[in-house]
Design a protein around this nucleic acid. Structure first.
Ligand SMILES: [Mn+2]
Ligand SMILES: [Mn+2]
Ligand SMILES: [Zn+2]
Ligand SMILES: [Zn+2]
Lengths: 124, 124
DNA sequence: CATTTAATGCGACTTTGTTGCAATAATAAA
DNA sequence: TTTATTATTGCAACAAAGTCGCATTAAATG
């Protein structure tokens, strides 16, 4: 179960690394020069998530967005921050602010999924 | 465009009102005695949302959950709170804590979708 | 080069949610 | 009560997002 480097994984990796915003599957597919299968892209992205290279956010549109996180690179894999999805241009960004979570007693935390939708500054 | 009361809308309304947790479409369908079409249920729920009777949260599982909110009943329609989805029993709850949101300059707020997944107290 | 097995492509499939349209029925008007 | 209006429903078809099995391809290792 050792990971192998392929043209597809390299490409997807660099697309995500370059991107300032989180990308959905279809955004990535558009940016790919060669035609890579949908299933492959999803598998690559999910592997990246397992390996904590990227993190995943589910938008209020129901889609999954993947991103290299602003904070994750340094510290361990945490993404306790809000995301912003522009309903005009579709861009999804990681916001800086860190969220503090307090759960009721006997609740076990697993994952935070926080996203604000609205209009971004470029679209105002 | 005035709303009409039907057996289905009444039933769905009372199911949601009784429920202490947010319900997805299929959770509601299970609770219905009579067989109501999927499309109808969705249309009723979306109408309730328009009328600000219930609010909708998109889970990190990609599904939509609908709930009478703890706070919404009194004040105007706001649901700036976290939700908790138990990955064991599937229950989705509105949490009490109110979230304060600060966006970067020139960003326009439209909607907050915040959900924490984990294990609830009944499932620990 | 030969071997091992992770990664891919393809197709089929599931799940979630929406939409067009004709039929039904709740409400208002007569 | 009867009639007219039109919101609501059921059905079927559809779309979008994501997953999975399986045969094939091709990295990695020696
Ligand atoms: Mn992020
Ligand atoms: Mn809520
Ligand atoms: Zn924008
Ligand atoms: Zn639970």
């Amino acid at each position: 179960m050792k990971r192998r480097k392929t043209e597809s994984t390299n490409k997807i990796y660099s697309i995500l690394k370059k991107s300032k915003s989180a990308l959905s599957h279809d955004m990535i597919q558009e940016k790919m020069s060669s035609d890579v299968d949908r299933a492959t892209i999803y598998r690559v992205l999910n592997r990246f998530c397992e390996d904590k290279i990227v993190h995943k956010v589910t938008g209020d549109d129901g889609k999954q967005y993947f991103a290299f996180c602003i904070n994750c690179q340094e510290k361990k894999h945490k993404h306790n921050h809000f995301h912003f999805r522009c309903t005009s241009c579709g861009k999804v960004e990681c916001l800086e602010s860190e969220i503090k979570i307090t759960l009721p007693n006997d609740y076990v935390f697993q994952n935070l999924n926080a996203i604000i939708s609205g209009i971004c500054s470029s679209c105002t």
